[in-house]
Computed example of a mutant assay.
Amino acid sequence: MRSFVPKYIVGGVTLVRDSEAPAPGRLLLLRQPPGRGWGLPAGLLRRGEAPIVGAARELAEESGITVDPRELTPAVPNAVVHAKGWVDMVFELSVPASTTVLEVDGAEVYEARFHPIDDLPRLTVATARLLAYYGIGPLVAPDDPTSMARPTAPARDE
């Protein structure tokens, strides 16, 4: 990465699935300002912060779900490199939605909710692109063998 972009930003992202939902499942999404699309619990890592620790911290800050970082599992792929100079370190977690309390602050996050993977709401472009790496969402080709859901309407940027 450094050979193309001398400085880059690293973020921690968590794909939170509902452990109680039948296949293809449900995914936690957040509606954040300006509120025109849904995204994933994510944020920038602090200097020297381990990606798994940053992802757990951001998850707690944005959704109220507090977990020990060791409960997160590295997603495959774990690192998604974006052309504009940032890297997302992606982790996964399964929780029972029926007993998981979601708490948002109303300023940084308007709303947090589990959505059926086969009927996702309008996503931010960044979220749609990231989810495509995991076979989820509107940017996955219908005949893609990794697809976990049928395609939905194209994502639009905020």
Rank of each mutant, 00 (worst) to 15 (best):
L93C: 06
S19F: 06
A112M: 07
G39K: 09
M89N: 13
M1Y: 09
S98N: 05
A79S: 12
R47F: 12
D68T: 15
I136W: 01
A55V: 05
E58K: 10
E158Q: 11
T127A: 15
A112P: 06
R36F: 11
D143L: 05
T100K: 06
F4M: 07
R31A: 05
T152V: 08
R17V: 00
W38D: 14
L59I: 08
E20T: 12
V10M: 14
V53E: 15
G64T: 07
E62P: 03
H115D: 05
V53R: 10
T127K: 00
P6L: 11
H115N: 05
F91I: 00
S19D: 10
G135D: 04
A149S: 15
A75G: 05
R122P: 07
V109D: 01
E92N: 04
E111Y: 10
P6H: 12
V10L: 10
P145I: 02
V125R: 14
S3W: 09
A128D: 12
G54L: 03
F114E: 06
R70V: 13
D118L: 04
R36Y: 13
G54V: 03
M148F: 02
T14M: 01
S94I: 01
P116S: 03
D144R: 04
D118T: 07
L120C: 14
P51T: 05
D118S: 14
A42G: 09
R17W: 10
E61N: 15
P6C: 06
P34A: 11
A153V: 07
G64C: 14
V140E: 04
G137V: 03
P41W: 11
